[in-house]
Amino acid sequence: MVSITNLYKRFNKNTVLSGVNLEIHQGGIFTILGPNGSGKTTLIKSILGMVIPDKGTLMVFGKNIKSNSSYRHQINYLPQIANFPSNLKVKELIKMIKNLRGDPGTDLELMERFELAPFLDKKLGTLSGGTKQKVNIVLTFMFDSPLIILDEPTTGLDPISLLFLKERIQIEKAKGKTLLITSHIMSFVEEVSDEIVFLLEGNIYFKGSVSALKAKTQEQDFEHAIASILSNNHA
């Protein structure tokens, strides 16, 4: 589904990705982990074509994404920080995105679950962080695409919304979709992921299931397993 070969990216003098090779097959939940600045967001943005790699090829759905934009019809993306045009109203934003994608979408159920109805006529600039994230999630899940990319989806969510998000992720997985998630909340990662991709200093340090990671680091607990990778590497 997504195949990345030998991907390099640097910003000025700062090398972020140095030769990443990654193969993501259809179906299941993949989480990308790594310390701050390890290149998680850069990797995701490269898949979306927002960051242009210096070297390497990126194939999504079997096609090279270089100077191609139509493949994004089949991707739903939840950005890390919900930065929306602040003078737009919530309902205008939703209408606009539908219009731009040329897809009516299914937002009603999501809106109801997140209880967003009272905010529809409010401007995005006046919303709280959590409410913005809910709008963000509605925008992401309202289209039916085979690949869903979530960058830090749990930020700012209250427990009920978080529960709903997890539920929704499982529903999408059951439909045979591929989900690519980054998160720093280890319990969340352990709960949802089928496979983990651990990025360290611009390279893939580990790829496999949660239990394989535990076995590799000889730790019982997932959080400690991650911590042991980090401390061993920095020591």
């Binding site: 979306l48 074509g49 927002m50 934009s69 139509s70 493949y71 994004r72 019809h73 991707i75 993306y77 950005p79 930065n83 929306f84 045009p85 602040s86 995105i97 731009l100 994608r101």
Partner: peptide
């Protein structure tokens, strides 16, 4: 900028 970033993730 935010608007642009939003658009960049869309098939445009």
């Amino acid at each position: 900028r935010e608007f642009t970033e939003l658009l960049l993730a869309q098939p445009l």
